[in-house]
Design a protein around this nucleic acid. Structure first.
Lengths: 182, 182
DNA sequence: ATTGCTGCAAAACCTTTGCAAATGT
DNA sequence: ACATTTGCAAAGGTTTTGCAGCAAT
């Protein structure tokens, strides 16, 4: 449940195994404490919710997160949520995921290198690890006189569930606005 | 890809060589005529400007394009530009490019498969062709039960000019871009 | 004449910002 | 006590929409 980080111990492990929820807790806690001292109520609310979102892998918009937090815990400022998301993206705790329609969502990400496979119907997001080699990126940069710092690979498709017609479009999900299940 | 226009001057060539400006003209013309009948003044303005932007490879925001058009030709509706961009993105004449700061630009793209290398300082965009194999994308999809339709690979770095300190930040460029009146 | 595009302005959308008050250390 | 963070509301920036008028076919 709630991890009271009163004597916030540093996370024992640097890298997180896939699906290791306990690690997500540590990484999120650290991100908060690295950047700030006060252990405030809003941050505990955020921590709890983010741990849950890390478990389900659900992608959410900034507004989604605000709505869910206030529904679950009561009052929390909209700006607080937006500011926290910004910090957490910088801390690499959250990934910003670009959907095919130009909008974006956030997602609690695994600590290791990965990219996103996104269903264009229901916006479900799945991680994968395939990528070009570091050498290839260097080569791409070299050819154009760039120093390469980062990259993003996003694959769009249709998930099994949507292929089977259980979902008609992303609109359905957005309109339902419910949490999606695992 | 497909070239399925109306009864207008068919483009003579299906694929565009790098830097082949004439082809860009054809593709832009076709995109307009595929989707609509009237050959209107705003569309001629857009065509002319887009051909120029195709030549320079410059990335622009929707607002940039509007400002440039009204500066060069006089009155044109903001909504017209936004609506046209939307159509042209769907027609695959324009690429939507996601910058590292979360904003985006558009770009007249070559007809062939490519991805973007973006300078995080000045937002310069360069094309490259390296990519994972189609088989790899299929495999990624298969593993997760997805049917893969599309993908996007974006590489971020610093271009030569910015490395040399000729540009301090993307802000400089943004501030320079003309955005007066209204 | 019909159809659909255009321009204008207002509305909608989403996010950021300013600042006083609350909170943690 | 002090420094930060929070919440509220207002501002900001960008894109979309409604509609009357107009242009192309």
């Amino acid at each position: 449940m709630k991890k009271e980080p009163g004597s916030h111990s540093r996370p024992p492990r640097p890298l997180c195994a896939e699906g290791d929820n306990q690690d997500a807790v540590c990484r999120i806690e650290n991100a908060f404490f690295d950047l700030s001292r006060p252990n405030t109520a809003p941050r505990r609310m955020l921590l709890e919710k983010l741990v849950e979102l890390a478990r389900t892998g659900e992608a959410f918009s900034a507004d989604d997160l605000w709505q869910q937090l206030r529904a679950a815990h009561g009052r929390i400022g909209r700006a607080t949520v937006f500011r926290s998301i910004e910090q957490l993206v910088e801390s690499r705790v959250l990934d910003r995921v670009e959907l095919s329609d130009g909008s974006h969502r956030y997602r609690v990400c695994g600590g290791s290198h990965h990219h996103h496979l996104i269903c264009t119907m229901c916006n479900r997001v799945v991680d994968f690890r395939e990528c070009l080699s570091a050498h290839t990126f260097d080569e791409i940069g070299r050819r154009h006189g760039f120093t390469v710092n980062d990259h993003k690979l996003t694959v769009y498709g249709t998930c099994e569930r949507c292929l089977k017609g259980e979902r008609k479009s992303a609109q359905d999900l957005l309109e339902n606005s419910n949490r999606s299940m695992e």
